[in-house]
C-alpha cells in the first residue's frame, strides 16, 4: 500500500509536468492548428535560465520570474519570425519549422549555458513528508499545486474573459472570428506566449526533482505531444488527463515491472487506446462532410 502510494505520488508529479507540456501543445493547436514541437524547449529554457540567473546571485523568485519572461519572449519570437512568415504552409512544413526551432534553441542553450546537468533548491525544503508510509517530496506537492493552479487559471481565463472567448472563437472558426473583428494573429501570438510561460513554469517546478540540461526538451516534447494526443487533440481537459495518465503508467511500470520499459509500456498503452478510440479520450470524432 505504501509502495503504491509512493508510485502514485511520483506518477502524478511527472504526469503534472506532461500535462503542462500537453496543455502548451493544446493551446497553440487550438489557436492555430500548429503542432509546436519546440514546446519542450520552453521547459528547458525555464529551468536552465532560472539556474543560470540564480547563479549570478539573483534571488530565486526573481530568477524564475526573469526566466518566465524571457521564455515568453522566445515564444513570441518563434511565432513572429518563424511561424508567421510561413503562414499557409502545409501542416508538415509548419511542424518541421518548429522542429528546426527546437534544434536552434537547443544549440543556443548549449552555447549560452553549458552541457552539464543542473538542479535548483526545492521550494519548501527537501525533507520528505511521511504520508501513509510513503515518503513524498515537498517539491512534488509544489509541482502538483503549481500545475493545478495553472490549469484553474487557464480555465478561468478562457471561460471568464473576453480574450478567452476570442481564443475559443478563433479555434472554432478562424474566418468567422476574423469577420467579427478578432485579430486572429494576436490570438496566436498570445497562445504562443502563454504556452511558453506554462512550459517555463513546468521547467522551473520540475528542475529541483528531475535535473535539467540543454537537451531535456526533446523527450518532454515527445511526452507532452503523446499526452495531448492520448487525451484528444485540442482538448484541454484531455491534455491534463492524458498527461497524468501517462505519468501514472510510467511510474507503475517502473515500480512493478521494469524501469527500462516504462516508456515502452506507456506508448504501447497509447497505441492501444488510439486504436480503440481513434480521436483520443476526450477528442471529438471529425467526420468530413462531403
Amino acid at each position: 500500500m505504501a509502495e503504491l502510494l509512493q508510485f502514485v505520488s511520483s506518477g502524478l508529479t511527472v504526469g503534472a509536468i506532461y500535462a503542462l507540456v500537453g496543455l502548451g501543445f493544446t493551446l497553440i493547436y487550438k489557436a492555430s492548428d500548429i503542432i509546436n514541437f519546440a514546446q519542450g524547449e520552453f521547459v528547458m529554457l525555464g529551468g536552465m535560465m532560472t539556474v543560470f540567473v540564480a547563479m549570478a546571485d539573483v534571488p530565486l523568485p526573481v530568477a524564475a520570474l526573469i526566466a518566465a519572461i524571457v521564455t515568453a519572449g522566445v515564444g513570441l519570437a518563434l511565432h513572429r519570425f518563424a511561424i508567421e512568415p510561413a503562414r499557409g504552409a502545409s501542416p508538415v512544413v509548419l511542424i518541421m519549422i518548429t522542429i528546426g526551432a527546437s534544434i536552434f534553441l537547443r544549440g543556443i542553450a548549449q552555447i549560452v549555458f553549458d552541457k552539464r546537468f543542473h538542479s535548483l533548491p526545492p521550494l519548501f525544503g527537501s525533507d520528505p513528508i511521511q504520508f501513509g508510509g510513503a515518503a513524498i517530496l515537498p517539491q512534488s506537492l509544489a509541482v502538483l499545486g503549481g500545475a493545478a493552479f495553472i490549469v484553474i487559471l487557464l480555465w478561468l481565463f478562457i471561460e471568464r474573459t473576453l480574450l478567452g472567448k476570442a481564443v475559443i472563437a478563433t479555434s472554432a472558426n478562424r474566418l468567422a472570428a476574423r469577420l467579427i473583428g478578432i485579430d486572429t494573429r494576436q490570438i496566436v501570438d498570445f497562445s504562443f506566449v502563454v504556452s511558453a510561460v506554462i512550459g517555463a513554469i513546468a521547467g522551473i517546478l520540475i528542475t529541483p526533482i528531475a535535473l535539467t540540461s540543454y537537451d531535456v526538451g526533446t523527450l518532454l516534447a515527445l511526452k507532452g505531444f503523446a499526452a495531448a494526443m492520448l487525451g484528444g487533440i485540442g482538448s484541454a481537459p484531455g491534455a491534463v488527463v492524458g498527461g497524468l495518465l501517462l505519468g501514472m503508467i510510467e511510474a507503475m511500470t517502473a515500480g512493478y515491472l521494469s524501469s527500462n520499459y516504462k516508456d515502452a509500456v506507456a506508448f504501447l498503452i497509447i497505441l492501444i487506446v488510439l486504436i480503440a478510440i481513434p480521436q483520443g479520450l476526450f477528442g471529438r470524432a471529425k467526420i468530413e462532410r462531403v
Binding site: 515527445l222 494526443m229 527500462n260 520499459y261 516508456d263 515502452a264 504501447l268 488510439l274 486504436i275 481513434p278
Partner: peptide, 27 residues
C-alpha cells in the same frame, strides 16, 4: 491497426512504434 488513424494521431502512433523498437534494442 494504426493506419486507420489520421493526421497527428497517426504521427503519434508511428512515433510510439519507433520508440518501442529503440527501447527494445536498448534493453
Amino acid at each position: 491497426p494504426i493506419l486507420r488513424l489520421k493526421g497527428h494521431y497517426l504521427a503519434v502512433a508511428t512515433l510510439g512504434f519507433g520508440l518501442l523498437v529503440a527501447i527494445v534494442l536498448t534493453n
